[in-house]
Simulated scan of single mutants.
Amino acid sequence: MSSHKSKKRKPNNDLNHDTLDTSKPSAVFVPTKGRSHTLSIALPGSIIANAITFEQKTALAGQVARACAVFCVDEVVVFNDGQASTRPPEQEGFTAFSDPNYFLYHVLSYLETPPNLRRTLFPMHPDLRLAGALPSLDMPHHLRSDEWCEYREAVAARQEKVEGTPGTLLDCGLSANRVFVPVLLEDRTRTTIKMPAQDARRQNTKSALTCKAVSPDTPREEAGYYWGYSVRQAPSLSAVFTEAPYEGGYDVSIGTSERGHPAQSILTPGMDGYIEPTWKHLLVVFGGVAGLEAAFSADAELQRAGVPAVKELFDTWVNLVPTQGSRTIRTEEAVWIGLTTLSVALAARGGAE
């Protein structure tokens, strides 16, 4: 019987063990320059109805939120594709089994909010009973109390005068300073603030730190930070487009379907569906269990307008996995696959900024 000799790894002498700290994550978002372009995704709330238990419904919403955080999605649109019935909320406003569109919107909104602001902005609600146990999104605006950033998210605490100037005291998660903006805000109003240039930790902790209230887009446009995603509901597929928050709407839209062109076409110059890296507002729309075709058929506005087919709504109509082995790709899977595929196009757009 041959003896077994254990094989030990040789130490890597090239590593400087005195300086290498493996106790903390190293993938910290570092902005390089301002970003004017945005990425939006749209998906139907009916995917929540397809999940059986409350736990599954909550976990599904968490998967979508994680994908949005990882790939820096700026806007999420939850639309009604007509494939799930809705009814008034159950006891105490519980919507997991009565209104899947609102439930998905509600959980996504909660997860995007910085943890230190959630208790103020989201009173206890049965929809969110399990949301606190979901994996953290840990986005750049989810700052710890001892972290410094030139921007922060804050919530209005009370109106007050500071050195004779009327304004509002805010809670932004800084433990050593009160934060003040010279703007009158209603209590529990969420706002984005720009901190003064000097380090607030060197300020007199007894005085309020005066900041500037800015648009939620400012951290992205001025400094290039990924600053989370906004969430909106759309009553139909067509409303995803007609209720766009950007002036002029989305200049490029991508529809996803197993009947579309291979997704590689959006990355290859000369192919049908190629996307030039010059767009400003990109929208990617995912279908539910029955696909975008079902959402199109249920949309009365599109039917009255005489749109011949759902693919005519989009600039590009793609198949994310042309060689799929499973009969179906779930929407939450399609979001991860689609954003991974698009990451090359997004990087090209960032380089052309």
Rank of each mutant, 00 (worst) to 15 (best):
V240A: 04
S230N: 11
R158A: 09
T218G: 01
T189R: 08
Y226H: 11
L174W: 07
Q233V: 15
V252A: 04
E221K: 15
F241C: 10
C172S: 08
D251G: 07
T192R: 08
T191P: 00
S207D: 13
E153F: 05
R188K: 14
E153Y: 04
P196K: 12
A156S: 12
L209M: 12
R190I: 00
E150G: 05
E153Q: 13
V240H: 07
T205P: 07
G248E: 14
V183A: 00
A197P: 03
N204L: 09
S230A: 12
V214T: 06
A197K: 03
A234F: 14
G228R: 03
V183P: 11
P196E: 11
D251N: 12
G255Q: 01
C211G: 07
R152E: 05
E153K: 13
E221L: 09
P235W: 09
Q203A: 15
E186V: 02
S207H: 15
N204K: 04
P219D: 00
N177M: 09
R220T: 15
S236Y: 04
K194F: 00
T210Y: 01
R202A: 03
L170R: 03
R158L: 09
M195L: 15
C172M: 04
L184H: 11
T168F: 00
R232S: 11
K161I: 03
Y250S: 05
I254L: 11
T191C: 14
A197W: 06
A176W: 12
A244I: 05
E150Q: 08
Y151F: 14
P166R: 05
Y225N: 00
E186S: 13
P166H: 02
L237P: 03
E222G: 04
E247P: 06
Y250H: 06
S207Q: 15
F180T: 11
P235V: 06
T192M: 08
T192A: 03
T191N: 03
Y229C: 01
A234W: 01
G167F: 03
E163S: 05
K161N: 12
A234Y: 01
G224T: 01
E221Y: 04
E186C: 06
R152I: 04
G173Y: 13
L237W: 02
T242G: 01
A234R: 10
G249W: 09
V231F: 05
V183F: 05
S230R: 12
A156Q: 09
P182C: 14
N177Y: 08
T165E: 05
P182S: 15
Q233K: 10
V181A: 15
S230K: 14
F180D: 08
F241R: 14
A208E: 09
A223K: 07
